[in-house]
Design a protein around this nucleic acid. Structure first.
Lengths: 118, 118, 118, 118
DNA sequence: GTGGTCTAGACCACC
DNA sequence: GTGGTCTAGACCACA
């Protein structure tokens, strides 16, 4: 896994897990990698993973069972979707729209531009 | 001027100047506020403005005349547009599109969603 | 470490690191002193070292790992050599040659003159 | 006349005059442009030229006659040659040689490299 | 007046 | 512990 510098690594890891939840690759009550496993597999400091899991638990997306491990929460999909959607509408879309305006790009062009990239 | 915490203040100031260039509020060879003036007017430390100006000069968006001040570069508009457009196409649009996909939002809905916000 | 006044200290520090790279005293992926260590050892303010490291990172000669430190980039030797060589050929050599001409010094004498100094 | 940023403008002007002396384009007791003429012709602030002339006078390369103007000193050629030669041997040559060593360039190659540039 | 640099010291997020 | 940023204040060369 590769990281970019713009965002904290622990949040990038959290995002990746959220994505897997939204893609239904991770489902309710499914166990996720232990802190150590995860740390080894993505080559980061275990403390960083601890922070990721603490953050996700705080958001109610995962829960822990002592001595067993971390699990995807029952309503993780809905909760993640809501969180991301709210952030998208309140933050990302307005900023994105502002940039588009400055660059003189219209909504109608977006699809075409995206296709060009892929 | 207000700042948010996600991004360094010196970069937020730089962004603001780039916007003014793109809006043609600042034009080629136009002098911009001196380090000290700017620092006073937006209430930051002069060193922070020094950093902003050094960054913009490096990008070729402004140039300096010794003992005189900083000026908008001749090709600042084009250069800024290119920089921002490249970043938009290579970084922002793909990320934005990925988020849209995860949230199940289509291009066709974007205009409507944006209108709802405003 | 001693500094002269003609050039900014942060650039003199950078030059010293570049020299060590060219002398292979510093090699790829080798960790360099932390900002604070370096500041203490050469007796300058940490901010000055921050500036040096930011400059070298920008040049692609070092890279950072968050919370860990700065490291010599993989292609640092080649990159430094290219940078310095280009500067030498485009700037230093022409200026040097011009001065030689004005002073009536020939290439053939250079070796002798240099030996005399040492 | 164009200036680079590495050196103070007033010194670049002084250097240009020294060159003209060494090329015998300016000879003993010849009058040089007045401060104002010079300032206009090379598009700099008159204060900058004042500084240049003060510097050259201090070096004994020019002298002034009140109400008349500035003139090339009688022994300007010899004095300039000595100054530049001393600086060349004590400063420029050692620095140049050090750079050559780091870049793995030999004296024998210099002529060839110079020819390549021209 | 202008910008450039440096010191001192602080706070922060992050690993 | 790491680096990143910011403030405060100083000094300098330069135009």
């Amino acid at each position: 896994m590769e990281f970019h510098a713009q965002q904290a690594i622990y949040l990038q890891i959290a995002d990746r897990i959220c994505e897997q939840v939204l893609r239904k690759e991770l489902n309710s009550d499914e166990r996720i990698s232990s802190v150590r496993e995860m740390a080894v597999s993505i080559e980061v400091n275990p403390n960083t993973v601890v922070r990721t899991y603490a953050y996700l638990e705080e958001q109610g997306i995962i829960y822990k069972q002592r001595g067993v491990g971390y699990f995807i929460a029952k309503d993780a999909y809905q909760r993640t979707l809501n969180l991301k959607k709210e952030y998208f509408l309140k933050r990302e879309l307005p900023v994105f729209y502002k940039t588009m305006s400055l660059l003189g790009i219209e909504f109608e062009q977006l699809k075409e531009l995206t296709d060009k990239i892929n």
